[in-house]
Design a protein around this nucleic acid. Structure first.
Lengths: 222, 222
DNA sequence: ATTTTGTTTTTGATTAGTCAAAATATATAT
DNA sequence: ATATATATTTTGACTAATCAAAAACAAAAT
């Protein structure tokens, strides 16, 4: 029943409610920006979604998924991330190119195909960017990680996730050995200059802005 | 630029112009039936396609693809048939279930992904139903085959194609060993009764209506 | 307590694709 | 040659999703 547009609104509400919201309410403006539509369109659509029981709309405050809306959104996200994993692991595409592909395929793939893809990939827990893949039952890992902007300095760390899907950033991260699985150490962090310096396992040093460093999630090497 | 609806109209015009048309003109009614829309919708859409230079519309007579329209339609057909091949050969889906899947995915897959799929599958010439896959350059094999309704009787034959995508018929064909690659002989053909009897390599005999037999294309075993 | 600023909602239009039903043209049969 | 049946086109209406621009509201600043 859910159209492509409906699936996209729900998906973006889910993603925005993870990142930004404290009270769980996603501001209409943030949603409009994410969907690349004018704000008025978002109001119209959100009211329609609310009518359908998929979201709760607090006028002038924001929007929040209902249980049913979250269920649908998690399904879309699961499809998206499994498709990205397939494109990278099986078709050997570059991880910086798969996002727009998955953006279209996620609305066209059935549960049947998805289950087979999942099995073919060995039921992966994360996609190539380290983003957790919701389970078929709608469970989404909420593990919290430090970032290169917030982690302890000096200690060896493993990159576990890159939370920025722009092709440019992903390409940059790949070229400079900051893809999930890489081992790095933060050697210096200068808040005033907004600069983070990391040393890679190759010995090479690399400087990043705090903003960029915040997109690289890391975990201590055990 | 071509929307999902446009791609579907063009694809169906191509398929119908293969099967039925003598003069190359597809009647509006046939197109409406294939698209499962009312005739008026077809008239409206065909006029829009003609405006876009994708078809030639002969009012009250029918519609025919232009060079550009044929190019687009062949692209859709290539995507459809490569996707079906992937679903059967790689994901091991039943050949009777893949048509509706491909029907949606064919509009969501990029050339990049398609090329990689094609390579993964080893550049197949036909899909699991024996339907020829248009080349990336837009060449479509036009080999003409006899059917179980028209072939010589007595001689051993290889099934090369099943031209009917309904799940029921495909399931029937599979269960009774009439999938592409199978070897059979027509032992009897009774025009009056409209019945064809075939003997399979297993020795089992099977009776088919002439209409059903016409959907099984065969070639002499060399 | 007002004014200003920024966000959200409303209103009126637009586009793509569709249906229902009436009107028209063509082919077929008498 | 005319009536009848069939196919096609036209007309008017509808839905989903969108934009532009005006209006309304809420928060922040004076």
């Amino acid at each position: 029943m859910a159209t492509v547009a409906v699936e996209n609104y729900l998906k973006h509400i889910l993603l925005l409610s993870e990142g930004e919201a404290e009270n769980g309410l996603v501001p209409m403006g943030a949603l409009a920006a994410a969907m690349a539509v004018v704000p008025g369109t978002t109001t119209t659509m959100v009211k329609a979604l609310a009518d359908g029981g998929l979201v709760e709309h607090r006028p002038r405050q924001g929007v929040r998924l209902t249980g049913e809306g979250r269920r649908v959104a998690l399904g879309v996200l699961r499809r998206h991330r499994l498709i990205e994993t397939f494109l990278v692991n099986v078709l050997k595409m570059d991880w910086s190119a798969v996002h727009p592909e998955a953006e279209r395929l996620e609305h066209a793939i059935s549960d049947e195909v998805l289950d087979r893809l999942d099995a073919l990939l060995g039921h992966p827990a994360t996609d190539p960017h380290g983003d957790p893949i919701p389970s078929a039952q709608g469970k989404l890992s909420t593990e919290v990680h430090a970032t290169l902007a917030t982690c302890a300095t000096g200690k060896p760390l493993r990159v576990v996730r890159v939370t920025e899907q722009s092709a440019e950033f992903l390409h940059f991260a790949e070229v400079h050995g900051l893809a999930p699985g890489a081992t790095v150490r933060v050697t210096d962090r200068n808040l005033a200059a907004g600069l983070v310096t990391v040393k890679k396992s190759t010995g090479h040093a690399l400087a990043l802005s705090l903003a960029a460093a915040g997109n690289i999630l890391v975990a201590p090497v055990q």
